[in-house]
Measured scan of single mutants.
Amino acid sequence: MKKYKITVYDEKTGEKHTIEIEMSEEELEELAKKLAEKHNVKVRIEKV
């Protein structure tokens, strides 16, 4: 498992949230996809 920083940005409201999380790359990609689809936000992932 690796550490990642996830930034979620909502273009409508301008809200931006960043968290650090430790998980596998596959789980992370699935999480990012679900966030983007369900909440209509942009998701950026960076390795820490």
Rank of each mutant, 00 (worst) to 15 (best):
M1K: 13
M1C: 07
M1Q: 09
K2Q: 15
K2P: 12
K2C: 15
K2L: 14
K3M: 12
K3R: 12
K3L: 10
K3H: 11
Y4H: 02
K5L: 10
I6E: 00
I6S: 00
T7G: 02
T7E: 05
T7Y: 06
T7A: 02
V8L: 11
V8H: 02
V8R: 02
V8W: 15
V8M: 15
V8S: 03
Y9R: 04
Y9K: 03
Y9P: 00
Y9L: 07
Y9C: 06
Y9F: 08
D10E: 05
D10C: 10
E11Y: 14
E11H: 09
K12S: 12
K12Y: 10
T13L: 05
T13G: 08
T13M: 04
T13K: 05
G14T: 03
E15H: 13
K16D: 08
K16N: 10
K16L: 13
K16E: 14
H17S: 10
H17W: 15
T18Y: 09
T18K: 03
I19E: 06
I19N: 03
I19G: 02
I19W: 15
I19P: 00
E20R: 10
E20I: 14
E22N: 06
E22A: 06
E22P: 02
E22R: 06
M23V: 10
E25M: 11
E25C: 12
E25Q: 09
E25K: 06
E26K: 11
E26R: 09
E26D: 13
E27H: 08
L28N: 01
L28R: 02
E29H: 12
E29T: 10
E29N: 10
E29D: 11
E29K: 14
E30Q: 11
E30M: 11
E30I: 12
L31F: 14
L31S: 01
A32G: 05
K33S: 08
K34D: 05
K34M: 10
K34Y: 12
K34T: 09
K34R: 13
K34H: 13
L35F: 08
L35C: 10
A36Y: 09
A36I: 10
A36G: 09
E37V: 05
E37C: 06
E37L: 11
E37Y: 04
E37K: 11
K38A: 06
K38N: 13
K38D: 11
K38P: 07
K38G: 10
H39V: 13
N40W: 11
V41S: 08
V41T: 11
V41A: 07
V41R: 02
V41I: 09
K42Y: 05
K42S: 10
K42A: 06
K42E: 08
K42I: 15
K42H: 09
V43C: 03
V43L: 04
R44Y: 14
R44S: 15
I45C: 06
I45E: 00
E46V: 04
K47F: 15
K47S: 14
K47G: 11
V48S: 03
